[in-house]
């Protein structure tokens, strides 16, 4: 039986998540892997927004910030369990995305870029300035998720690094599964259609404004969950999680790997997560190399790394 692209993607991802630890030289790499997966989750949301629906956002870190600070604040102030705080953060992100999405998504190209950028910056600014609540630029502590202790009670003992590696890997798999379901679904088709030609999409009955909004809200939830997981595993959060650079990182990861496909974008997340690790030896040059990679990939591999590499691999040149 022929494997569908969805099954293939999920199998490749699952295999990578399960098998890579056998090659880890030290426990430190679990931490890097977990970070990669967290980025992968946010980037999968960008695939839905940018890859499927063709809309740009330069402010999605704002939603990551909401997710992260929900986990820091809700348990302390309202005694909410951190797991529920993740859901609360996602809900707040979704509501915010829903409220601002409709006017913002009427905009196109650079205008959409600057509007989303402004949105993200405003969130970051609130987190920076409301010191009594958020601790300001110094950040604040985030409580323990508690799942690891629960697992231990059931007889499954994992180190902190291992736990977060596999937990984030699992969430990424679920996120990828949802995104792949969406791709082939009526909603996914409508999103890709409006990406191709908005006017034609409207004439076949697609409510373009509504569908863009759905993609925006879904991708905001992905970003929020990614922010929550980042905060929970670091047990600490600073406003940088919502910062402009983090937004840019999300877009870059997605486009770098190939925003049209879930696997490609996660691949991009991998590259951009690992690059600083590789470059720690040349810490001085890290920023220059990052900038250069962004420029070169966009010029020479326009579809992103993975699709370009795969094409070379198959020897098919169109």
């Amino acid at each position: 039986m022929k494997m569908t692209p969805k099954t293939a993607t999920l199998l490749v991802l699952a295999a990578l998540i399960a098998l890579t630890p056998f090659f880890f030289p030290s426990g430190y790499y679990y931490r890097v892997g977990a970070l990669l997966f967290v980025n992968g989750i946010a980037v999968t949301g960008m695939v839905i927004l940018t890859g499927y629906a063709g809309q740009i956002s330069l402010g999605h870190a704002g939603f990551a910030g909401i997710g992260a600070y929900a986990c820091a604040l809700a348990p302390v102030h309202w005694g909410l369990h951190p797991a529920l705080a993740v859901i609360l953060g996602a809900a707040i992100s979704a509501i915010l995305a829903f409220l601002v999405g409709r006017p913002i998504l009427r905009l196109k190209g650079y205008y959409l870029g600057v509007a989303t950028l402004g949105l993200g910056i405003l969130v970051a600014m609130v987190l920076n300035n409301e010191r009594q609540l958020t601790g300001g630029p110094d950040g604040m502590a985030v409580p323990e998720l508690g799942l690891r202790a629960l697992l231990k009670g059931w007889g499954l003992t994992l180190s902190n690094g291992e736990f977060w590696y596999f937990f984030c890997g699992l969430v990424l798999l679920v996120g990828a599964w949802l995104a792949l379901n969406l791709y082939a679904s009526p909603t996914g088709r409508a999103l890709r259609a409006l990406h191709g030609s908005e006017v034609a999409a409207r004439t076949v009955g697609i409510d373009v404004a509504r569908l863009k909004l759905q993609a925006f809200v879904i991708s905001a939830v992905y970003a929020s969950v990614s922010g929550s997981l980042l905060a929970l595993q670091n047990k600490f959060v600073t406003p940088d999680v919502a910062g402009f650079m983090h937004s840019i990182e999300m877009v870059t990861m997605a486009v770098l790997g190939g925003v049209g496909s879930v696997l490609g974008a996660i691949f991009g997340a991998g590259i951009l997560t690992l690059l600083p690790q590789v470059l720690t030896v040349f810490a001085e040059y890290e920023q220059m190399v990052l900038g250069l990679v962004m420029v070169l990939v966009m010029i020479f591999l326009r579809e992103g790394l993975l699709p370009s590499v795969l094409r070379k691999f198959r020897g098919k040149d169109e």
Partner: peptide
């Protein structure tokens, strides 16, 4: 001829590059 997203990333990449070079 590259799409808007690519151009945004290129110029932001250039910005990050210049900033990194200025540090050095």
């Amino acid at each position: 001829g590259a799409p808007v997203v690519s151009l945004i990333i290129i110029t932001i990449g250039a910005s990050i590059f210049i900033e990194g070079a200025a540090q050095l």
